[in-house]
Amino acid sequence: MNAHQSVGENNKPAYNYAYLDEQTKRMIRRALLKAVAIPGYQVPFGSREMPLARGWGTGGIQVTAAIIGPDDRLKVIDQGADDTTNAVSIRRFFERTADARTTEATDEATIIQTRHRIPEAPLKSGQIMVYQVPQPEPLRKLEPHEAETRKMHAWAEYGLMQVKLYENIARFGEVTTTYDYPVMVNGRYVMAPSPIPKFDNPKMQRSPALQLFGAGREKRIYAVPPHTSVRSLDFEDHPFRIQSWEQPCGLCGAADSYLDEVVIDDQGGRMFVCSDSHHCETRRAEGHRGAMLADASALHLVEDEAKS
């Protein structure tokens, strides 16, 4: 089962602990240190080819592989849930290659690798968030050339980004970016927070956790150290605002979490449920009950813990 035996055992070749060789891990850790020292700055790194496809989290996996140790507890989420296909696949990868102790509980995890969400439960000091990043360059859609965007960052030329927001407001009355909403880190670098919903942006502001970002295909690492200012870009008279829903979670009744829409029949029936599956389960275990929990249970869409 474990893929990381040392060579010599059975004389068969094998992989190093956490797949990457130690030299590579050191290289990544050096990049991470630089990233922490310059919050929001994209540090180029020698991204390795991984046994998982580019775009499927190879940046986050390399960051996690570089920092994980036997004492860690790893939580992996995709779209907020622990049991989505890619989260399962990445968790299995670390179970195989690093004997990782895994958990679904946000407060038990020391490392949380994520794609597209920040957990609802507040993060704590000592925890590390590892974000999988498809496109680290927040200016890329405005300026396709890397040579130019690096200059724009170097000299903090961010007017064009503001023009984009202006255009949104002029056309739609508001900024229409709903995920990967650009932020200003430590008052200096404009940064892509990865495709988390803008709902999660405020959770980054002065978070006690260390936040690391890995973009494998684009070969960039960046970071937000604990207690750092992370401000979503906006206008003074059009302040940043987050999504809201008209109803609470159908299963746990939470009114303050990010909701996913589940289509439950072909008559247009819908249910809104927490995207953070662990958060939802925790609340249900605490006795919170949403309006559709009974229906969902009857339809076998949910295992009703309260009944069992």
Binding site: E157, G159, L160, Q162, V163, Y166, E167, I169, A170, R171, D234, F235, E236, D237, H238
Partner: peptide, 18 residues
């Protein structure tokens, strides 16, 4: 847009009031 074109230099130079 025309407004964005004219406004760009203002935003370049730090204007943040729509």
């Amino acid at each position: 847009s025309a407004g964005g074109n004219v406004g760009e230099r203002l935003m370049d130079n730090g204007a943040r009031h729509y």
